[in-house]
């Protein structure tokens, strides 16, 4: 009876939400399940097995996957570290720098990597690197990843900083801390959850990138996504599903981690709270 009176409620919205989640999760779950399929055919279910996981690490393609994984992880780590540092500095300037001319322009610059379609960024970067004679390879991938990770690192950091009352830095300065000490001892510890969330998101974004990497990687170097894409072109094999399952589990793990970090961090940022 109460439910019917609740004016917020719309019949049918719950089923749509469920449908939405089913569409989002069904393909992932199916791939997860079939990655444990003990059959060469990807269609028939041949019983539960870890053989395709073994195959990734010991099979004929294991060396390729290992190289690709190493490249992906080290690039993601470096790109996330660099972009988080740059984004933290930018966030402090944008959120705590007062009003200044060109602020909107700066914001546009920071968010440009999100605004420009990925394929356009890929084309432009490829053209630029070849024009200036920058050798395509590990370093070119790393540089491109730093660029497009900046806005993803920036957003949670800036959001966090906006939620931190300005009187904390003022109090620190009032208590004889220099500007740098105020940042290091007060602002940065308070920003830490945002910085960590930004780092993790940048890490995932770098780990996930396919389009840009595919354009500028040059010959002879692969990251996990480009290796998977290359393999999938010849049809979906069960070992790719196992690899995908590992990768998506890592992504979900990291996102879950960052979700709880930002939730935990939300407490106690308002002065006097």
């Amino acid at each position: 009876m109460r439910r019917r009176l609740d004016i917020r409620r719309y019949p049918g919205f719950l089923p749509v939400t469920i449908l939405c989640l089913v569409v989002l999760y069904a393909p992932l779950l199916v791939v997860m399940v079939y990655s444990f399929n003990d059959s060469l055919s990807i269609t028939r279910w041949g019983g539960f097995s870890f053989r395709w996981y073994m195959d990734i690490f010991t099979g004929p393609e294991s060396a390729k996957f290992k190289d690709a994984a190493w490249n992906s992880l080290t690039i993601a780590l470096c790109a996330a570290t660099a972009s988080t540092t740059i984004a933290t500095a930018a966030a402090v300037a944008m959120v705590r720098g007062g009003a200044f001319r060109g602020k909107a322009l700066n914001l546009a610059l920071i968010s440009m990597p999100i605004m420009v379609p990925e394929i356009v960024t890929a084309v432009a970067t490829l053209i630029f690197f070849s024009a200036i004679g920058f050798t395509l390879g590990y370093l070119s991938i790393l540089v491109a990843h730093i660029v497009f990770c900046i806005p993803f690192a920036y957003l949670p950091i800036a959001a966090r900083l906006q939620g931190i009352d300005g009187s904390y830095e003022e109090a620190a300065q009032d208590l004889y801390a220099s500007r740098f000490q105020a940042f290091l001892r007060v602002l940065m510890p308070l920003m830490a959850p945002g910085i960590l969330a930004g780092f993790l998101l940048a890490f995932i974004i770098s780990l996930d990138d396919f389009i840009i990497t595919n354009f500028i990687k040059g010959a002879g170097i692969e990251t996990l996504p480009t290796a998977i894409f290359g393999a999938v072109k010849q049809g979906i094999k069960p070992n790719i599903m196992a690899l995908s399952t590992i990768m998506l589990s890592v992504s979900i793990l990291i996102v879950t981690l960052s979700y709880f970090i930002s939730r935990y961090g939300r407490q106690g940022t308002k002065a006097g709270a």
């Binding site: 007062g98 610059l109 900046i150 105020a182």
Partner: peptide, 24 residues
């Protein structure tokens, strides 16, 4: 509005300008 870092905001933005400006 806290303007604590207004005097150094240019320095803080330079890395962004360099990286995004040069590579995008």
């Amino acid at each position: 509005v806290s303007r604590t870092f207004a005097p150094v905001r240019t320095h803080l933005l330079i890395p962004t300008w360099v990286i995004i400006g040069f590579f995008l």
